[in-house]
Simulated assay, not measured.
Amino acid sequence: MRVSPEGLLLGVALDALFGDPRRGHPVAGFGRVASWVEKKVYSDSRGRGVLYTGLLVGGVVAGGVVVERGVPGEFSRALVTGVVTWAVLGGTSLGREGRLMASALERGDVEAARGRLSHLCARDPEGLGSAELARATVESVAENTSDAAIAPLLWGAVAGVPGLVAYRAVNTLDAMVGYRNARYERFGWAAARLDDVANWVPARVTGLLTVVCSGSGEAWRVLRRDGGNHPSPNAGRCEAAFAGALGVTLGGANSYGGEVERRPGMGDGPAPGVADVRRAVRLSGRVALAAAGVAAAVAWVRR
C-alpha cells in the first residue's frame, strides 16, 4: 500500500481542530451497516461470527484499496489520507470526554458524571461514587489512547488508507459484538480475537510512548511488572504504564451488564482521585502527539 506521511499529519491536525465529524460520521454509518448484517447472519456459532467479521472487514479493506489505487498524484493522496485519518481518529473526542468527566467530578456532580461514563466505557455507572468514577475515567483514557489514536495512526503508517479503515472497522465490531455474554460469546469471538491481534503492537507502543512522554522510570517499572495482569492482552500495557506515570493504582472490581469482574491492581500509589483525571487526559494528549510523529516517520521510511 502507498502511504502518505503528509496525509497522516493532516488528519491529526484536522482531528485536533474539529474533533469527530458532527454529522454523517462514517464510523456511525459503518455501525448501522454492521447492525443490519448482524440481523441477517446472526447465529450462536463461531462460524457465523467469522462470516460476519470477514464480510464487513473484507468489504471495508476492498473499498480502501479502491480509493487508494484510484487517487492520482501525491497531493491528492495526501488530501484523501488526511480526510480518512480524521474520520478514524478519536483522540480529540477522548480528551474532551475526559475533561467533561473531570469538570463534573470537580463540582461534585456525581449524577452528571455517571451519565457521561457510557461515552468512555461500558462499565455500569449505577452506584459508582466519585472515586470509582475517577478510576473508571483514568483507566478508560489510558486504554482508549491506544484504540482512538495510536493504533489507527500506526496502521495508516504501514498500510495507508486500507490500514486506517480496516483498523477502525475491526475496533468498531469488537465494541459491538466482542462481549462474553450469552448472545456474543461465540458469535463475537472472531471480532474480539481480530481486535486483539490488531492492537497487539499499538498497545505496546502506547505503553512505551507513555514511559517516554512521562519521563517516569516508575512507568517503565510498573509496565514491565503489571502489564500482563489485565484480562485483556493489550489494555493492561496501556493502563499499567499510565498507573506508573501518574503514581496511582488502577484495577479492582468493575461491573459490566450486572456481572462483576475483579481485576488485579496495577501500580503502587493510591487509587486515582479527581485531580488525576485531568493529568491522565494531558498525558494521553502528549502520547498521541508523539505517536503522530512516529507514524509519520514510519510512513516516510515506507515511502
Results as ranks from 00 to 15, higher is better:
99 R>Y: 12
202 P>C: 09
302 R>P: 14
110 V>T: 04
11 G>S: 02
176 M>D: 03
9 L>D: 01
175 A>N: 00
231 P>A: 00
213 C>E: 07
188 G>T: 01
6 E>F: 03
164 L>R: 08
112 A>E: 04
202 P>A: 09
168 R>F: 05
272 P>F: 08
187 F>T: 02
111 E>H: 15
292 A>Y: 03
35 S>H: 02
33 V>D: 04
201 V>F: 05
80 V>H: 11
16 A>P: 00
79 L>S: 06
16 A>D: 00
103 S>Q: 10
240 A>M: 11
32 R>H: 13
118 S>Q: 15
282 R>I: 07
144 N>F: 02
2 R>Y: 01
155 W>G: 08
154 L>Q: 07
302 R>L: 13
180 R>H: 12
85 T>N: 05
273 G>N: 10
17 L>K: 02
150 I>Y: 08
50 V>Y: 02
205 V>G: 02
242 F>D: 12
162 P>N: 08
212 V>S: 03
187 F>L: 05
193 R>Y: 01
145 T>E: 08
47 G>K: 05
249 T>P: 13
80 V>I: 08
153 L>D: 11
289 L>R: 09
269 G>M: 09
108 G>K: 06
144 N>S: 14
237 R>E: 10
68 E>C: 12
208 L>M: 07
259 E>G: 03
202 P>L: 07
118 S>I: 04
177 V>S: 06
59 G>T: 08
161 V>L: 14
245 A>W: 11
98 G>F: 06
290 A>P: 11
288 A>Q: 09
205 V>D: 01
137 T>I: 12
204 R>V: 00
97 E>F: 06
18 F>D: 06
199 N>T: 01
196 D>V: 08
217 G>S: 11
192 A>V: 00
282 R>E: 15
233 P>W: 13
303 R>K: 10
170 V>R: 05
143 E>R: 10
138 V>E: 11
72 P>A: 09
177 V>M: 06
30 F>C: 02
12 V>C: 02
240 A>G: 09
177 V>W: 07
209 L>T: 00
25 H>T: 04
235 A>D: 01
70 G>A: 14
25 H>F: 04
32 R>Q: 15
173 L>R: 10
268 D>V: 13
219 A>H: 01
252 G>D: 15
166 A>C: 14
67 V>C: 06
111 E>F: 14
195 D>G: 00
268 D>S: 09
165 V>R: 07
69 R>S: 13
83 V>Q: 12
126 E>T: 02
16 A>Q: 02
257 G>F: 10
191 A>E: 00
93 S>F: 01
252 G>N: 14
13 A>I: 04
271 A>F: 14
207 G>C: 07
168 R>P: 02
170 V>Y: 10
236 G>S: 06
171 N>P: 04
82 G>E: 11
248 V>R: 01
175 A>K: 00
250 L>D: 13
241 A>V: 10
212 V>T: 02
256 Y>F: 10
130 S>L: 13
180 R>L: 13
106 E>P: 13
130 S>T: 12
165 V>A: 08
277 V>F: 15
31 G>P: 04
229 N>Y: 06
171 N>E: 06
161 V>R: 11
9 L>P: 06
220 W>Q: 05
